[in-house]
């Protein structure tokens, strides 16, 4: 199953890279969301998959009973999801602000800092 997910992650990364290379920064943001998901899945899969055994300690025991899922990547992914959301929210607002100020969603046309003056090409 890890192998199948590795392929899926490849698809996610490919689509997100394609989106991030787009002219329209809204597509870039879509790519950002997808690549965050891909990254989270990579961490998760690297810790190996265990079906149906959450890392919990039953009442009365000092540790988990039997083979349970790897808790460490889960903790890392939890943090990553929240931070990824923070990044997404900020990027979305930034793009929105850029649109209201510059009147375009196309990154090629956002040239306040480097106006096309001597650009002969």
């Amino acid at each position: 199953m890890e192998a199948l997910l590795a392929i899926t992650i490849g698809v996610l990364v490919a689509t997100s890279v394609y989106l991030m290379l787009a002219r329209n920064v809204l597509r870039f943001i879509f790519g950002l969301v997808l690549i965050s998901n891909a990254a989270n899945l990579i961490i998760f899969v690297s810790g190996r998959l265990t079906a149906g055994a959450p890392p919990l300690i039953p009442e009365g025991a000092d540790g988990p009973v039997g083979d349970v899922a790897n808790a460490l990547p889960q903790a890392l992914v939890l943090t990553a999801i929240v931070i990824g959301f923070g990044l997404f929210a900020f990027a979305l607002v930034l793009m929105f602000r850029a649109y209201t100020t510059l009147g375009t969603l196309y990154s090629d046309d956002m040239r306040i800092a480097e106006p096309r003056t001597e650009d002969t090409t």
């Binding site: 890890e2 192998a3 590795a6 392929i7 992650i9 490849g10 698809v11 996610l12 990364v13 490919a14 689509t15 997100s16 890279v17 394609y18 290379l21 891909a38 990579i42 899969v45 690297s46 190996r48």
Partner: peptide, 17 residues
């Protein structure tokens, strides 16, 4: 480019696994 990166990520992940 996107396809190549996706493929290489998959391969790296498989190698890691």
């Amino acid at each position: 480019l996107a396809g190549a990166i996706g493929l290489s990520v998959t391969l790296v992940l498989l190698a890691v696994l």
